[in-house]
């Protein structure tokens, strides 16, 4: 159970969408929001789960919380079938939706925590200890008596994260936890999550559009598109899968016609400077050697593809299929 703490096996979710096609006519179309996804997450891992809008991320999260029943396949979280035993599972998981709040809007933050205390039947001493920890690490001390509606987005988000953690969940699902936050608030949230994972071994599944979140927090990333898992592995490995290219920028002694070497193509020529693209999966050394041997080289630099471009390219490629 430790290695497949969260386990999905061939999970599908099909929605019937009715569309009006005429005055009275309606057409039923089936949408495969999640189309056969399998993965496991061991206990204590922090995984990024990314994909374009409408890829099926939220649907997956909803099946993992038990509020949606899969159309096919098998889901287990902490050994529990979420859709069947949603209430039992609720005590093991914490959920934060960046764009929604679980807090009592008109009342001071403290009141929402009191509600969590009773709702999850948290023993008094644990509640006190967890409150103290969250208040300190998420810097909530001065906010406890402020009505939630008066909190800034960043403050509210920190409040929501604390609310999701008071009952010591073993798994935390985060859906866009840094959306709309300023740089400082983002850093605070990330630091907190990193500590949470390191100190308490909480398993974290993080959905985000902000790839910096992933780069800073997750060693492993899963990419979903059109309901299918298109990548599952280390963040660095995305480059190879994405067929991305690195760029070699060479400064020559003078203006020359485009460089001709095997394994690279010229992207751009600007005076004595030329840009050469080559596959990210191969070493730059032979290419540099070849150029240096045949051309009067003054200076050079290698540019890594940025991860956002890689993923954007992945999405685009799949859409074209």
């Amino acid at each position: 159970m430790e290695s497949d703490f969260i386990a999905l096996d061939g999970v599908e979710k099909v929605f019937d969408v009715r569309r009006r096609t005429g005055r009275l006519r309606r057409e039923k179309t089936r949408v495969r929001a999640v189309d056969g996804i399998s993965f496991t997450v061991p206990r204590g891992e922090m995984v990024g789960y990314i994909g374009p809008n409408g890829a099926g991320k939220s649907t997956t999260i909803k099946m993992l919380t038990g509020i949606l029943t899969p159309s096919g396949g098998r889901v287990r979280v902490a050994g529990i079938d979420p859709a069947r035993e949603r209430t039992r599972l609720a005590r093991h998981i914490g959920v934060v939706f960046g764009q929604r709040t679980t807090l009592w809007w008109d009342l001071p933050l403290r009141d929402s925590y009191r509600l969590m205390h009773r709702m999850y039947r948290i023993p008094d001493d644990r509640f006190k200890a967890n409150m103290a920890r969250c208040v300190e690490q998420l810097d909530l001390g001065e906010l406890l008596d402020v009505p939630v509606r008066q909190l800034s987005l960043g403050q509210r988000m920190r409040g929501d994260i604390a609310a999701a953690l008071l009952h010591d969940p073993e798994v935390l699902y985060l859906d866009e936890p840094t959306i709309g936050l300023d740089v400082i608030s983002k850093a605070k949230v990330r630091d907190f999550l990193r500590d949470l994972n390191a100190e308490r071994g909480t398993t974290v599944l993080l959905t985000t559009h902000d790839l910096t979140d992933i780069e800073q927090l997750c060693k492993r990333v899963m990419v979903i598109d059109h309901g299918r898992l298109v990548y599952d592995g280390a963040l660095a490995g995305l480059h190879e899968v994405g067929e991305s290219e690195r760029t070699l920028v060479v400064d020559l002694e003078r203006e020359l016609p485009p460089v001709e070497v095997a394994g690279a193509r010229v992207l751009k020529v600007e005076g004595p400077r030329q840009w050469l693209a080559f596959p990210a999966s191969v070493s730059a050394a032979p290419l540099v050697a070849a150029v240096a041997q045949r051309y009067p080289l003054v200076d050079l630099s290698v540019r890594e593809p940025d991860i956002e471009a890689v993923i954007a390219k992945m999405y685009a490629d799949r859409s074209a299929l």
Binding site: G66, A90, R100, T102, L103, W104, W105, M119
Partner: peptide, 9 residues
């Protein structure tokens, strides 16, 4: 006004 509430499955 937002408050999380819940239902049993």
């Amino acid at each position: 006004a937002c408050l999380g509430l819940a239902t049993r499955g």
